[in-house]
Simulated assay, not measured.
Amino acid sequence: MSCATGNHDHHDVYAAQCPCRDVLDLLANKWSALAIGALEDGPQRFGALQRQLQGVSPKVLTQTLRRLEDSGFVDRTIYPAVPLHVEYSLTELGRGVAIPLAQLRTWVEEHLDEIQPA
Protein backbone atom coordinates (compact mmCIF):
# COMPACT_ATOMS: atom_id res chain seq x y z
CA MET A 1 0.00 0.00 0.00
CA SER A 2 1.52 3.24 -1.13
CA CYS A 3 0.29 6.75 -0.69
CA ALA A 4 2.77 9.00 -2.42
CA THR A 5 1.54 12.45 -3.31
CA GLY A 6 1.65 13.89 -6.79
CA ASN A 7 0.34 10.90 -8.74
CA HIS A 8 -3.20 9.80 -7.94
CA ASP A 9 -2.43 6.23 -9.02
CA HIS A 10 -0.38 5.87 -5.85
CA HIS A 11 -2.94 7.22 -3.40
CA ASP A 12 -4.66 4.64 -1.24
CA VAL A 13 -7.49 5.83 0.96
CA TYR A 14 -7.16 2.60 2.96
CA ALA A 15 -3.54 3.35 3.92
CA ALA A 16 -3.29 4.76 7.43
CA GLN A 17 -1.05 7.70 6.52
CA CYS A 18 -2.64 8.65 3.21
CA PRO A 19 -3.75 12.31 3.03
CA CYS A 20 -6.80 11.05 1.14
CA ARG A 21 -8.28 10.23 4.54
CA ASP A 22 -8.24 13.89 5.57
CA VAL A 23 -10.17 14.84 2.43
CA LEU A 24 -12.61 11.99 2.94
CA ASP A 25 -13.10 13.07 6.55
CA LEU A 26 -13.83 16.63 5.44
CA LEU A 27 -16.28 15.64 2.70
CA ALA A 28 -18.02 12.96 4.76
CA ASN A 29 -18.82 15.54 7.44
CA LYS A 30 -22.55 16.34 7.30
CA TRP A 31 -22.05 20.11 7.54
CA SER A 32 -19.48 20.07 4.72
CA ALA A 33 -21.76 18.04 2.47
CA LEU A 34 -24.72 20.29 3.26
CA ALA A 35 -22.74 23.53 2.86
CA ILE A 36 -21.47 22.41 -0.54
CA GLY A 37 -25.04 21.54 -1.53
CA ALA A 38 -26.32 24.91 -0.35
CA LEU A 39 -23.72 26.67 -2.49
CA GLU A 40 -24.58 24.74 -5.67
CA ASP A 41 -27.03 27.42 -6.81
CA GLY A 42 -24.52 30.23 -6.43
CA PRO A 43 -22.75 32.45 -3.93
CA GLN A 44 -24.31 33.04 -0.55
CA ARG A 45 -23.64 35.14 2.50
CA PHE A 46 -22.97 33.55 5.88
CA GLY A 47 -26.41 34.38 7.29
CA ALA A 48 -28.21 32.84 4.32
CA LEU A 49 -26.13 29.68 4.64
CA GLN A 50 -26.86 29.46 8.35
CA ARG A 51 -30.61 29.83 7.75
CA GLN A 52 -30.54 27.12 5.09
CA LEU A 53 -28.47 24.71 7.20
CA GLN A 54 -30.92 24.47 10.06
CA GLY A 55 -29.30 23.39 13.32
CA VAL A 56 -25.72 24.46 12.56
CA SER A 57 -24.17 26.84 15.07
CA PRO A 58 -22.29 29.92 13.84
CA LYS A 59 -19.06 28.47 15.25
CA VAL A 60 -19.43 25.13 13.46
CA LEU A 61 -20.44 26.79 10.19
CA THR A 62 -17.41 29.11 10.40
CA GLN A 63 -15.10 26.15 11.05
CA THR A 64 -16.66 24.16 8.22
CA LEU A 65 -16.38 27.01 5.71
CA ARG A 66 -12.75 27.64 6.72
CA ARG A 67 -11.84 23.98 6.22
CA LEU A 68 -13.58 23.92 2.84
CA GLU A 69 -11.82 27.13 1.84
CA ASP A 70 -8.42 25.88 3.04
CA SER A 71 -8.91 22.69 1.00
CA GLY A 72 -9.86 24.54 -2.18
CA PHE A 73 -13.56 23.64 -2.35
CA VAL A 74 -14.95 27.07 -1.41
CA ASP A 75 -13.96 30.66 -2.21
CA ARG A 76 -14.54 33.48 0.25
CA THR A 77 -14.96 36.89 -1.35
CA ILE A 78 -14.91 40.06 0.73
CA TYR A 79 -16.62 43.14 -0.69
CA PRO A 80 -15.57 46.50 0.76
CA ALA A 81 -18.82 47.86 2.09
CA VAL A 82 -20.26 49.04 5.38
CA PRO A 83 -21.08 46.68 6.92
CA LEU A 84 -18.56 44.24 5.45
CA HIS A 85 -20.08 41.98 2.78
CA VAL A 86 -18.67 38.44 2.53
CA GLU A 87 -19.88 35.77 0.11
CA TYR A 88 -19.01 32.11 -0.17
CA SER A 89 -19.04 30.22 -3.47
CA LEU A 90 -17.89 26.90 -4.84
CA THR A 91 -14.61 26.66 -6.71
CA GLU A 92 -14.28 24.43 -9.74
CA LEU A 93 -13.12 21.67 -7.39
CA GLY A 94 -16.14 22.31 -5.17
CA ARG A 95 -18.52 22.12 -8.12
CA GLY A 96 -16.95 18.81 -9.10
CA VAL A 97 -17.43 17.23 -5.69
CA ALA A 98 -20.96 18.67 -5.44
CA ILE A 99 -22.16 16.11 -7.98
CA PRO A 100 -21.45 12.93 -5.98
CA LEU A 101 -22.49 14.65 -2.74
CA ALA A 102 -25.85 15.57 -4.32
CA GLN A 103 -26.29 11.95 -5.35
CA LEU A 104 -25.58 10.84 -1.79
CA ARG A 105 -28.05 13.35 -0.31
CA THR A 106 -30.72 12.21 -2.78
CA TRP A 107 -30.05 8.55 -2.00
CA VAL A 108 -30.42 9.21 1.73
CA GLU A 109 -33.72 11.04 1.25
CA GLU A 110 -35.08 8.27 -1.01
CA HIS A 111 -34.02 5.38 1.25
CA LEU A 112 -34.42 6.81 4.74
CA ASP A 113 -37.57 4.82 5.42
CA GLU A 114 -35.73 1.57 4.60
CA ILE A 115 -32.87 2.21 6.99
CA GLN A 116 -33.25 0.56 10.39
CA PRO A 117 -33.41 3.03 13.27
CA ALA A 118 -30.26 3.00 15.37
Rank of each mutant, 00 (worst) to 15 (best):
A102H: 11
P43Y: 04
H111Q: 12
A4G: 10
E40D: 09
D41W: 04
L112D: 10
D12M: 02
V23K: 01
V60T: 15
A16Y: 09
P117M: 07
N7L: 11
Q52F: 03
G72N: 09
Q52A: 15
D113R: 14
G6D: 07
V82Y: 11
I99Y: 04
C18H: 03
A48L: 13
V74Y: 03
L49G: 06
T5V: 14
D12A: 07
E69P: 00
A81I: 02
A98F: 03
P117L: 10
G6C: 08
A35W: 00
F73P: 00
Q116L: 13
R66C: 05
G47T: 14
V60D: 12
R51S: 15
G47Y: 05
A81T: 13
C20I: 00
Q103F: 08
L104G: 04
N7K: 13
R21I: 01
V108W: 11
A38T: 04
L65A: 05
N29Y: 09
S2Q: 13
V13T: 05
E110A: 14
A4D: 13
Q44D: 08
I99N: 02
L61K: 05
C18S: 08
R51C: 04
Q103G: 13
F73L: 07
V23Y: 01
P58A: 09
G42T: 06
A38Y: 04
E69D: 09
R51L: 13
N7E: 11
H111G: 02
G47Q: 14
S57Q: 11
L53C: 06
A4F: 11
C3G: 14
Q63G: 10
D12I: 01
E69C: 08
V56K: 03
G72T: 07
G6S: 08
E69S: 10
S89H: 00
N29K: 08
H10P: 00
A118N: 11
S57P: 05
E92V: 06
N29F: 06
E87A: 06
D22N: 10
E87G: 00
L112R: 15
Q116T: 14
V74R: 01
E110R: 15
L93E: 06
S2R: 14
Q50A: 13
R51W: 04
V82F: 11
C18Y: 03
Q17L: 11
S71A: 15
P117F: 06
L68Q: 07
R76W: 02
Q103D: 08
I78H: 13
A28E: 06
T91H: 01
L65V: 06
A81M: 10
D70F: 06
G42I: 05
Q44Y: 01
L34R: 13
M1F: 09
A15Q: 11
L34C: 04
D9Q: 13
L24F: 10
P19H: 07
V74I: 12
V108M: 10
R45Y: 02
L49K: 07
E110D: 14
L65R: 04
L65Q: 05
S32H: 04
G94K: 02
P80L: 12
S2L: 12
C3P: 02
V56S: 14
Q54G: 07
P19M: 04
G96V: 04
L104S: 07
A102C: 02
